[in-house]
């Protein structure tokens, strides 16, 4: 029975010593220990957060760089394409201009030839007419004595003229 009856003396000492122990440990052990633990956990938390932040920033930076690179590449492609197009256009334009010029020159040449031809023809005609007139004049001078002969000559010439 003594086992389950609390003894007064032990109860007294237990209460006293335990409360003393509680005070001592609370002041000299638990307070600094819990404080340090909390501090350490906070600092670990902060460090992790900062590492995460740095990682994100790094990623942002990398993404920015890549975007810049991609933009540059795109711009270069664009410029190349534009250059090519422009060059092609130039060539095309040059061709058109050249062919137009060629056409114009040919036309001019043709016209000049035509003119020359016309002029030559006109000269031939004039010369022929002059010749005819000269011939006629000479004939007239020689043949005008005989009217029938005159007439005959005239007819003859005329016939010739028509043939021309």
């Amino acid at each position: 029975m003594s086992l389950i009856t609390p003894e007064f003396g032990l109860l007294f000492w237990q209460t006293l010593i335990f409360l003393l122990l509680l005070l001592l440990l609370a002041k000299f052990a638990w307070k600094p220990i819990l404080g340090s633990l909390k501090e350490r956990e906070d600092s670990i938390d902060n460090a992790l957060k900062m590492a995460q932040q740095a990682k994100e920033e790094m990623q942002n930076l990398k993404a920015g760089n890549e975007k810049l690179l991609a933009d540059a590449r795109k711009e270069r492609d664009q410029m190349l394409k534009e250059g090519q197009a422009m060059a092609a256009q130039f060539v095309e334009q040059a061709k058109t201009t050249a062919s137009a010029e060629a056409g114009r020159i040919t036309q001019q040449a043709r016209e000049a030839i035509q003119q020359e031809k016309n002029a030559a023809l006109a000269e031939v005609k004039n010369t022929a007419a002059q010749l005819s007139v000269d011939i006629a004049e000479r004939l007239l001078r020689r043949e005008l004595a005989d009217p029938t002969a005159q007439q005959k000559l005239v007819d003859e010439y005329l016939k010739d003229v028509k043939l021309n």
């Binding site: 003396g9 000492w13 237990q14 010593i17 122990l21 001592l24 000299f28 052990a29 638990w30 220990i33």
Partner: peptide
């Protein structure tokens, strides 16, 4: 009571050194 006193001293010693 003697054991109590000794174990309490031990606890104080251990945890103050940990602190």
């Amino acid at each position: 009571v003697a054991a109590l006193a000794m174990s309490s001293l031990l606890l104080v010693f251990i945890f103050s050194s940990v602190a």
